[in-house]
Nucleic acid binder design. Sequence first.
DNA 1: GATGAATGAGTCTTCATTCAT
DNA 2: CATGAATGAAGACTCATTCAT
Lengths: 217, 217, 217, 217
Amino acid sequence: MDIDKSGEEINFPEMTDKQRKIYESALEIFAQKGFSGASTGEIAKKAGVAEGLIFKHFKNKKTLFQKIAFAVVEKTLIPLTVQRIKSLLEKDYSDIRIFLTLFFEERLDFIKSNQSFLRIILQEISFDTQLQNFAREQFELKIFPLVNQFLKRHQEKGILKPLDTAVIIRLTMSSLLGYAVLRVLLFPDKNWDDKMEIQSTVDILCAGMAMGNQQLA
Amino acid sequence: MDIDKSGEEINFPEMTDKQRKIYESALEIFAQKGFSGASTGEIAKKAGVAEGLIFKHFKNKKTLFQKIAFAVVEKTLIPLTVQRIKSLLEKDYSDIRIFLTLFFEERLDFIKSNQSFLRIILQEISFDTQLQNFAREQFELKIFPLVNQFLKRHQEKGILKPLDTAVIIRLTMSSLLGYAVLRVLLFPDKNWDDKMEIQSTVDILCAGMAMGNQQLA
Amino acid sequence: MDIDKSGEEINFPEMTDKQRKIYESALEIFAQKGFSGASTGEIAKKAGVAEGLIFKHFKNKKTLFQKIAFAVVEKTLIPLTVQRIKSLLEKDYSDIRIFLTLFFEERLDFIKSNQSFLRIILQEISFDTQLQNFAREQFELKIFPLVNQFLKRHQEKGILKPLDTAVIIRLTMSSLLGYAVLRVLLFPDKNWDDKMEIQSTVDILCAGMAMGNQQLA
Amino acid sequence: MDIDKSGEEINFPEMTDKQRKIYESALEIFAQKGFSGASTGEIAKKAGVAEGLIFKHFKNKKTLFQKIAFAVVEKTLIPLTVQRIKSLLEKDYSDIRIFLTLFFEERLDFIKSNQSFLRIILQEISFDTQLQNFAREQFELKIFPLVNQFLKRHQEKGILKPLDTAVIIRLTMSSLLGYAVLRVLLFPDKNWDDKMEIQSTVDILCAGMAMGNQQLA
DNA sequence: GATGAATGAGTCTTCATTCAT
DNA sequence: CATGAATGAAGACTCATTCAT
């Protein structure tokens, strides 16, 4: 079970108990087996409800899946992210490498703990333009401003080079994503030395983004 | 159809015409719909053969899928990659940024043209340890030595910092992968300025990996 | 339809109507065509239900067949046999030939009326050790004691020779079975004179088993 | 493999090697799995020939099966029986029990060694009137006269009671058949004491058929 | 004669979905 | 709200049979 415990508190007050059970079981099974690989029968069994009940609440399988995908973004991934990075972003750093290292560690940990949620999104998002837009909007509305403000503050202080903040964010994110895909999805069984890998990545990123006197190791 | 034309020449001489048709149709449909989402009926129809014939040649759906996944790595992705990067790696560069830019452009182009193949691999590889090992072996045998030799040569010339070549390769690859996932899989419909994005990425990577006098833009 | 009418009253209260319909149709079709020769589609059609319903209740075709085979022994063949031979065994006979004649007639009639059930068992029993044991147990528990007590009583009265009752039973049964196999299974279309055949058989058996003064014809 | 070795010499000169291979493989597989349970693919594989070849020689599966059933009667069961019982029937017996014991032992041994052939016949004969007639004809033509002459000879000598020989034969055969069905088909795994069982059966049969002074044990 | 690729109807089974209770 | 029996279409897979070589 890789469900983030703090995430479970973020709940859906409008749902009945059984509805929520269905939702949670579906989430887990979709994450394990993909949309087509999961069967409503299995979901119902895991949720401890009658098969028919799923269709009282969710109309059909596709809808159930999509509702989950959207809700995962809005109710889980975004809030959890905000909650977790807020404290990191509130502080001021004299050396950006310290921040980046903490950030990468935190995000990798987040990805590890929330694989179920992420797998759901990865499955769906490349086929569903609506979800793409929704995810982007949510990101731009709730995450981007926080990070942007943080970056600008440190650029003003001369800690960061005056690059386009969107570029900084994308680069940082894609480096992280690249590592995470290799680390978590493709080769989870390899012996990874996360500390060292993050260190190397951060060093190189910093060399490009940080102002002069912050030395590499 | 996003099948790389030069790739189609790499064929399977032991296959009959219909067998190859099955193989190709299956590849495309699996890439579009995933393993469970694809039906053998649809594959047969697209291939223009009787459904039963699939099972004469491939025993079952899972085997068909796996054979494709393995063959894609061995007969398509690896040879195409070798063929395409060889000319890049034969030259000597006085500024590593020139190489990295060409490399990123080439690889992104490759990823765009071979989405079908890559999607197949991505689907399967996170569940199939055998495929993971096979892919890693093939990479370490056929790609790594080429790149390694190139890097060592440029380190000796003082163009590259004397970092562990494995780290350089992983970092470069994961930056590329991260960008490609965003660019091709997750948000293919966004307006991307590839030239600019690659430029920024390369600049930052170079700042970390290149020796002193190669200036950033 | 060769289903024994009195047998139909022995039913399965836990079954729904459709479930029973499936059960009955399957019984008949398996009896006619054997396990592999029967198709679930045909069974469903005969039962007037959707084919899928069979698998809601019985998991798979083999299970359906086995459930039927076991139930036929326990719920039909054994109870019917007990019910039918009980009255024969309660009486006392001064000439064992009278009993044997009645017994053979009754059993042959029973076999004729319950061919469906018997064919099911014969198909399965030579391949299924569990069914063999179950059938033997049921016989030894519910039939053997009745007959044994009857034989002992008549041995004490000096009507029957003091042979091992197990041997008497096996001989009588196998003579009956041999005749029944020829009569009902192998050559049902021949013109049989059952009265005469039974008479001859009984005469010879009696000569071996009955005490002295009971004369042969 | 329960094929009688002496039987294999009785061959089909008009068949090619492969045809005979098909015939033999089919015989064995039909015997094991029944008509519907056997597949032509499996038969071809076991015979080491291409699937299509079966249909060059035998037109279709049903025909193959029927040809086998008829040939088994004509070329195997009858000749083997004749060959084996001839020596038994040529002698003269002063006590019919000696003959019957030898006969039962020989026949039980025969049934044990030729189960494959017998299972084929049992499957088919109850559904196929032609085979019924053919089997009866063959029996009446090739076996009955031998036995009949033997019985008449011993009746004339006062060893056997002057009963209808057809009745004697049927009774003897059905006693044997009944025992064999229990012994070989239904409960092959039970611990049988064949000697004792045959002894008891023969004793009782003799008491009915033999003339007075041949005492029971 | 012999092969084995190819067919297409058929088999068992699963599954999303509906509906009476 | 909740159940689970029932459906029917579709799924993967098998198999007897044909045919070009």
